[in-house]
């Protein structure tokens, strides 16, 4: 009996402490993690505080961003049965902290390009442009910027973004067709036709030839109408 006193006490008190924890959690409305995030709003100061472990700190904030997103997603689905990204008010500050800690966090920019436009498309553009400034050689960010501009119907800007990205090393061939496509969407059919024609003549890529040909045919049909 005497030998069991300590193990029994250990288990009893561990269970009691867990119960106390759950009791307190049930009484708390705002999750602690969110409150804490609001407290630190500048990645720059956090960077200084992280004494050189800013990469690790950026990882932590990236994970926090995902956790926040996941938590909000679950919660909204529980309440409204549908997801509305525009209610994620902490998404932008969390992403900003992450990229201020580590300006080359491509995943964070790309995540922002997908979800920030639902909150504020202006700041989404600024966010992705900031990514491009920090990582001018990353063609995916141009693609994301093009997409963001496309979604706000700024076809000329979108075409410009795709065009700049398509010239970067590593950019896939289809990126080159995107500027012309954007111009089609934007209604500037003449310029688009010229671009597709040039693509059709200059490219060795069968895929691009195929797309350009199809687009040229479509544009011709418009013309004849």
């Amino acid at each position: 009996m005497k030998r069991l006193t300590c193990p029994i006490l250990l288990i009893v008190f561990l269970v009691l402490s867990a119960a106390a924890q759950d009791w307190m959690d049930a009484r708390r409305r705002v999750p602690l993690a969110v409150k804490e995030t609001l407290y630190v709003s500048s990645g720059e100061s956090l960077k200084r505080a992280s004494i050189g472990f800013d990469g690790l700190m950026a990882d932590i904030y990236w994970i926090r961003t995902l956790l926040y997103f996941g938590e909000q997603f679950e919660r909204q689905r529980g309440v409204n049965q549908q997801f509305d990204a525009s209610q994620l008010e902490l998404l932008e500050p969390l992403l900003n902290i992450t990229i201020e800690l580590d300006p080359r966090y491509i995943a964070a920019y790309r995540f922002g390009a997908v979800f920030l436009p639902e909150i504020n498309s202006e700041s989404a553009v600024r966010f992705v442009e900031r990514g491009i400034r920090n990582n001018p050689g990353e063609w995916r960010l141009y693609q994301d910027l093009g997409f963001v501009q496309w979604r706000r119907n700024r076809f000329r800007e979108a075409a410009d973004a795709y065009a700049r990205g398509s010239r970067l090393p590593g950019a896939p061939a289809w990126m080159r067709t995107m500027p012309a496509l954007m111009l089609v969407k934007g209604g500037d059919r003449e310029t688009a036709r010229e671009m597709f024609l040039r693509l059709y003549r200059e490219s060795d890529d069968p895929f691009i030839k195929q797309i350009s040909e199809a687009q040229l045919k479509m544009l011709d049909q418009y013309r004849e109408r």
Partner: peptide, 24 residues
């Protein structure tokens, strides 16, 4: 005060468990 009380109870239980393990 509820939070203070809850945290105090939690701390006492957690410490008791840690000390029981230490004694063990």
């Amino acid at each position: 005060w509820r939070m203070i009380a809850g945290n105090t109870v939690y701390a006492v239980c957690y410490i008791a468990a840690a000390l029981a393990a230490a004694a063990l």
